[in-house]
Simulated scan of single mutants.
Amino acid sequence: MKEIIAWAIALLFTLTVYSQQPKLKSAFNGKNLSGWTEPTDNKWWSAENGILIGKSDPDKKGSILWTKKEFKDFEFETEFRYVEGTVDSGIFIRNDKQQIQLGISGSLKRDMTASPYIAGLGYPVEAQNIQEILKPNNWNTMKVIAIAGYYEVWLNNIHVMSYTSDSFIEQGPIGLQVHPNNNMIINFRNIKVASVN
């Protein structure tokens, strides 16, 4: 019952947010990593011709690129493209314990794009109809809404997932990942974010 009430409140809040049309602002200038916390001895992230490139390092240590700004409730949009290798990436929600998966799950060995990964739980729900919607070798769009622990995802303008987390944190940055132990390249462009609180 508690979960149903929490879900209903989050859904009502989502509808309220949409009625107010939060103004998305660019979070990536297409030229450099301004606005992001560049990792020390950065081998993973670069910007070229409007594209943010995430690439595995030779030692396969992986990296998370974090926004400098922290967010509470937010809407995040990006275009992404799987370029090379076994892409295992994600959009991290306020910390490194909760994310929306992009690409192949290292634990499940299959594509779990748009599904939430929650540390300690794995994938509590699976996004719907991803095989039909995802264009693996082309640009795709993803929109993520995070209102407290309530997460919603749209892939290529189709709603594919809703989930309520009991272990969310209230505020933190948004991250993009190059997963450890993989050879991979992923591209992002047109990255936008809006606070909705």
Rank of each mutant, 00 (worst) to 15 (best):
K72I: 07
T40M: 12
E3N: 14
E84S: 04
I147C: 04
L134Y: 08
Q20C: 09
F13V: 07
K192L: 01
N197R: 09
R110W: 09
S105L: 08
I191V: 11
G30H: 00
L33H: 00
V83I: 12
N138A: 15
L33F: 03
N140P: 04
I158D: 14
Q101W: 05
R94L: 02
I169A: 03
T14W: 15
L121C: 12
V196H: 08
T37K: 14
K60A: 10
V193Q: 02
V83T: 08
L102F: 00
F28P: 02
K2F: 13
P58Q: 05
M184R: 01
F28Q: 01
G122C: 09
Y150T: 14
F92L: 14
Y150V: 12
W45Q: 11
F13R: 05
F13A: 06
G175A: 06
N197C: 05
I9K: 07
Q131R: 12
A6G: 07
K25S: 11
K2R: 15
K25L: 09
D111Q: 05
K2S: 13
E77M: 13
V178N: 14
E132A: 15
Y151T: 13
D166R: 15
E48A: 07
E77D: 15
T86F: 09
Y123Q: 01
Y151P: 10
M184K: 05
W36M: 07
Y18H: 04
T78L: 10
S165R: 10
V144D: 00
K109G: 07
S115M: 11
W139M: 05
R189F: 06
E84N: 07
N42V: 07
Y151S: 12
W154P: 01
G85C: 02
R189M: 04
F76I: 00
M184Q: 05
H179L: 09
F28R: 02
E77W: 14
L11D: 12
P22A: 07
N140I: 01
A146G: 14
D41L: 11
